[in-house]
Design a protein around this nucleic acid. Structure first.
Lengths: 229, 229
DNA sequence: TGACTTAGTGTCATATTTACACATAGTGTG
DNA sequence: CACACTATGTGTAAATATGACACTAAGTCA
């Protein structure tokens, strides 16, 4: 007990809501807890903030340590500080959400020191702490943000078909979109680069692959043109 | 030094960006610091989170203690946790923003134990800590939020003219709006209640006063109708 | 070769947004 | 008391954006 303070201090943690997208399904990366409390239960990856690291550094470190993820899209979500959110003591957690290209990070085997697995957002296990509530907030944020910022691309492979992109928006926004209107709109925004490649290994006509043209997007953004689905 | 922990813990504070609106000007409530560090400099109202209170409770307590404000619109903004943001030691702050009806809370005299004053957002003094950065984030948030949620009304008196409302939007969004189009749009949303009163003490034709009809807004919201300027 | 699956494409009706100007009401002044 | 001043309050038309809708084309597989 080396650290002494005049006033009681809450513990400070970070937790990460990691989104992936695969086969038309929005997924979350969860970790099976190896320690009490809630040992054996699924939870968001996260852990204590060290005194010498920033909050985002802590979140990135935990993602690396617990899930082998690095260089992902990461943004602060919300800070949860209710009294009873941790049964041990007062713990305040700064939640982040991450978007990862799922095929770069295939489900890790159950052989990991900590068990990590992807779950479909509409088939989640019961979670530790207030992590279900954190996920609800993250889903709302994702829904709100994806329409006005080109972050959906963070969930798709570098090259993707327009149909994949449309399905992503449909799943996140919990709606259906008209194919022709969707294509018209997204192509009119002029932020997609057509590649000369097409899908592989599909049992039907292969679709053209596109990539998100970030450079062009930055230029358009400067001009005040904005991205809206 | 009664509180002892195995690992070092950052101190945890809350800071509040308090917005007001007056005479066509967006204002911020600042406090002149009575203690080191940055003694005498202007800063956001805020302080340490007590171990037995939630984050929002802490923010509301500080608003009451330092500015005599209660029952204001308050929402979490962002959590700032960079190493060097406090010269004393590691301090993580959860920032909130508040919207207050300025005429309910007239500028307090310089006689307060702590000096509190309203400043126009485009004429701010140099601030303590990273508070200028926090304000930048708050302004962006306000700008983003005011268009899609009926929070602008929190900054106006209960009864207001359409011109006041328009000016508020113009100042927050840093743009100009067409009078006829603005009125058409806001009235078409059907969330304003016309009163039978008109402005007083103006040296020109007095404008009709309206009030925001929160009940009606909730109903429309349920139906999926949304508020967009 | 024929069945199957998904890709890819255009038009028209409707709704929304934008641009734009003048008569009216009330105050203050000479 | 009339005239200047200031801000209120109002409608229309053009341009743009959105939403509905169905068929041919390309490729796989049996």
């Amino acid at each position: 007990m080396k650290y002494k303070y005049e006033f009681a201090r809450p513990a400070l943690t970070v937790d990460c809501v990691v989104f992936g997208f695969d086969e038309g399904d929005l997924k979350l990366l969860l970790i099976q807890r190896g320690l009490e409390p809630y040992m054996g239960q699924w939870a968001l990856p996260g852990g204590f903030v060290r005194i010498e690291e920033s909050l985002e550094e802590a979140a990135r470190r935990e993602l690396e340590e617990e899930a082998g993820l690095n260089k992902v899209f990461l943004e602060q979500l919300y800070t949860f500080g209710e009294q009873e959110r941790d049964p041990r003591e007062r713990v305040v957690t700064v939640a982040y959400y991450a978007l990862v290209k799922l095929d770069d990070h295939k489900p890790r085997g159950a052989t990991d020191a900590q068990n990590a697995a992807w779950f479909s957002v509409d088939d989640l296990p019961h979670l530790a702490f207030d992590h279900e509530q954190i996920i609800d907030v993250a889903l709302e944020r994702l829904k709100g943000k994806v329409r006005y910022a080109p972050i959906g691309f963070e969930l798709l492979p570098k090259k993707f078909t327009l149909t994949q992109l449309q399905h992503l928006y449909e799943v996140v926004l919990e709606t259906t979109l008209d194919k022709r209107n969707f294509r018209k709109k997204i192509l009119a925004m002029d932020v997609l680069q057509e590649t000369d490649e097409i899908e592989k290994d599909v049992a039907h006509r292969a679709a053209r692959l596109y990539r998100f043209d970030e450079k062009k997007y930055r230029q358009l953004e400067k001009k005040g043109v904005n991205f809206v689905i």
